[in-house]
């Protein structure tokens, strides 16, 4: 799995605190200095220094005496996405997938034990009322999402062992698989079939199908998923049609990735 190499080397305490302020605001949308100080266990004065600094650089905004995350993060986020080769490779295919299915289609990358949405497109059936809307950059646990399980299925046994040892399998719905052995069995099936399902395991009333995208050398690049409400994702459509469609799209993206350097080189000439 990709991720930060924590636990080695020195860290700077004040940077850590700034990042904790940011995390506190991610969880709360907006908050005042007192609330943040309470959440972090810091003094109000210290929090004030941090939020002022972050505001100065555009990473926080002050609204009605409270703070929220600033657009500076969107600039950074946009740039991060631009640097993801998979985004450029598969964006159009994911857009087509959303148009063809009428549902929400996403491109998900794995990072540090989470699945991060790097692109999302919605089809015409995907109504405003449909929840959840997984915004760009939203992160989800691996064990209870289709894309996440597609990632886990790609890992060698020892990495799965490590993931399961480090990750508490929290129950989000009645259908969330919290038994590690059951999860292992499901991962074996996903590995054989090339498609993973989330049958209301993360959110009640929401189903999702996903398939992992690999490089020719077998390196995991990401996953493509289609999700929607249980009324529309049911029966044959959920278990056969959408998986077939996803296998097609993923196969195409993998081949286009394999030949990407060729097509780029020659389109420039």
């Amino acid at each position: 799995m990709t991720g930060s190499d924590s636990g080695t080397g020195k860290t700077i305490q004040s940077v850590e605190t700034s990042l904790r302020v940011v995390d506190a605001l991610r969880e709360r949308d907006r908050a005042g200095v007192t609330e943040i100080a309470g959440a972090l266990g810091c003094s109000k004065a210290a929090v004030h220094h941090h939020v002022s600094t972050l505001c100065k650089h555009g990473y926080l905004e002050r609204v009605d005496g409270e703070y929220r995350l600033g657009l500076g993060f969107l600039s950074v986020g946009g740039q991060v996405r631009e640097a993801q080769p998979l985004y450029h490779l598969a964006e159009e295919d994911v857009r087509d997938l959303a148009a063809e299915t009428g549902e929400q289609a996403r491109l998900v990358a794995e990072h540090d034990g989470s699945g991060i949405t790097i692109f999302r497109a919605t089809g015409e059936r995907d109504g405003r009322g449909d929840r959840p809307r997984m915004h760009l950059g939203s992160d989800e646990p691996l064990y209870c999402t289709a894309a996440g399980k597609a990632f886990l299925a790609e890992l060698p046994e020892d990495r799965i062992d490590r993931y399961l040892a480090e990750t508490p399998l929290e129950s989000y719905t009645d259908a969330t698989v919290t038994d590690p052995e059951l999860l292992r069995e499901e991962l074996a099936t996903i590995r054989a079939e090339g498609v993973a399902f989330d049958d209301e395991e993360r959110y009640e009333g929401v189903r999702c199908v996903a398939s992992a995208v690999d490089s020719p050398g077998g390196e995991l690049l990401g996953a493509i998923s289609v999700s929607g409400p249980t009324e529309r994702l049911s029966g044959e459509r959920f278990r056969t049609e959408l998986p077939d469609l996803l296998r097609n799209v993923v196969g195409v993206v993998e081949l286009e990735n394999t030949y990407a350097t060729w097509t780029e080189q020659f389109s420039q000439s």
Binding site: L255, Y259, T261, W262, T263, Q265, F266, S269
Partner: peptide, 28 residues
């Protein structure tokens, strides 16, 4: 990559890639 080949002394190329990549390869 085909470019690795084009830099060398080759007289000709046989293109037997998947169909979609015939064009970039052959044109190159």
């Amino acid at each position: 990559s085909p470019n690795d080949l084009f830099d060398r002394e080759v007289d000709a190329v046989v293109v037997s890639t998947p169909n979609k990549f015939h064009q970039p390869t052959a044109v190159g």
